[in-house]
Write a protein that binds this DNA or RNA. Structure first.
Lengths: 234, 234
DNA sequence: TTAATAGTGTCTGTAAGACAATATATC
DNA sequence: GATATATTGTCTTACAGACACTATTAA
């Protein structure tokens, strides 16, 4: 420890932002990947990310949004900070910190640029850097929040039916949910509200009513648990 | 955007770590503050923090632990990353990122160095930089986790009684809890285990049995809610 | 014995799961 | 009407809160 050293005598680590953008395509969770246009790993697909530009970005969330705009032409519906991975080994170029974000988009509302694509999360393994770790944390986060918040609702378009919302929760949580209990909870908690407009007829059977999220921003259930039998603890 | 610019041509932001260390003194939550030995705010008390030292610190958590050792002689029992505050305005010296941590210690097990002191959280207002924001997030975090994890247990010494554990939860959550329900939950969830050793007699009434946390690390309740009446949502 | 605090038993209310019953669409 | 899916009703069960009751200590 050299307390006399001025603070700027320490070499400043690299500071970047990486974003895990999740969306739902054909009822399956996908993740945005972009082709790298520089070394290292030039040409391979990784999570979208980039350096903070001190001149343009007011904060790191703005960095995340700028990176998504520039590298994938994506505007997100929801974004939240995930975790900061900061150590001497994650990037060969030196001590590096990556502020990671989780973002949710509706796949129908984006038109990706050339070098970007959505990949099923089940197939996005073995990513460069520590991106597998970051992606894993994003999936943990959305699963966790699915059990007590409206987050999975952001994967759908603005108006949706309750059966489709239930399917999204089931997809994210990885379990089947009881339809009656699901409806009761989602309505009792005032997570959704009915929308007058009639929906497209799905093809067979009684048509479902359309709903939308009651709030534009993320709502939670007061920690009421969405997982079945979770009260037993585990 | 100038994609031809090499990454190192961007000026690297400042990267620091700030730590909110919480402890319990006379049944009241306190926060560690240290006197600054440099500008800005030389001489005033702030959250302990410091620059990442790329040469010594393998990761940012190690930075946090080193800062606490050096500035306050504190070894923590539990530490977790809180949030990263990263923007152009939080520090007058320039675009700056602070990776913040929440740490929990037992006040009896530390002997603070000269320039450090514990301050009741109720009195720690109007801190320099954005430290009030960071402190607020730490308090939100421990309150949130109190509702579904063993985190508040780390505020106590290794062995404790269930009534004292209940008091800690009540202190952190800010509500009275039902003793029977509390014991049931904490025992059913296998959060604690009885310890054979007899405790100090508290002074009056039937002496309480001693328990310790069943796991050395943070356990959660499977999102079972600790707050009363929380099922109603809010 | 009394006072004080620790710990248990039991009743009640609420909400989740199961699942039967009803509603509304197409063919 | 037959079929399919959406939506509601209701029974059962598990758990949290309330609170009275029992247990164990010192004085």
């Amino acid at each position: 420890m050299n307390e006399n050293m001025a603070k700027n005598d320490y070499e400043r680590p690299i500071l970047t932002v990486d974003v895990v953008v999740l969306t739902l395509i054909k009822e399956e969770l996908h993740m945005l990947m972009v082709r790298r246009n520089r070394e290292p790993f030039l040409g391979t697909y990784t999570l979208p990310g980039g350096f903070v530009h001190a001149q343009e970005d007011v904060d790191s969330e703005e960095t995340a949004r700028r990176v998504l705009r520039d590298k994938a032409s994506v505007e997100v519906r929801h974004i939240e900070q995930l975790y900061t991975f900061a150590n001497s080994t994650r990037d060969k170029r030196g001590w590096s910190a990556s502020i990671s974000y989780l973002a949710i988009v509706n796949a129908d509302e984006v038109s990706l640029s050339e070098d970007a694509k959505f990949v099923p999360v089940s197939e996005s393994v073995g990513l460069p850097f520590d991106h597998s770790l970051i992606a894993g944390m994003a999936l943990s986060r959305i699963r966790d929040k699915a059990s007590y918040s409206s987050l999975p609702g952001f994967l759908l378009s603005e108006n949706f039916t309750l059966p489709s919302l239930q399917k999204v929760y089931e997809q994210v949580l990885g379990v089947k949910l009881n339809a009656a209990a699901f409806r009761r909870k989602v309505v009792d908690q005032e997570l959704v509200e009915e929308v007058s407009e009639a929906g497209e007829y799905a093809g067979r059977g009684r048509p479902a009513k359309l709903y939308k999220l009651k709030e534009r921003s993320l709502q939670d259930f007061g920690r009421v648990v969405m997982l079945p039998d979770s009260r037993r603890g585990g």
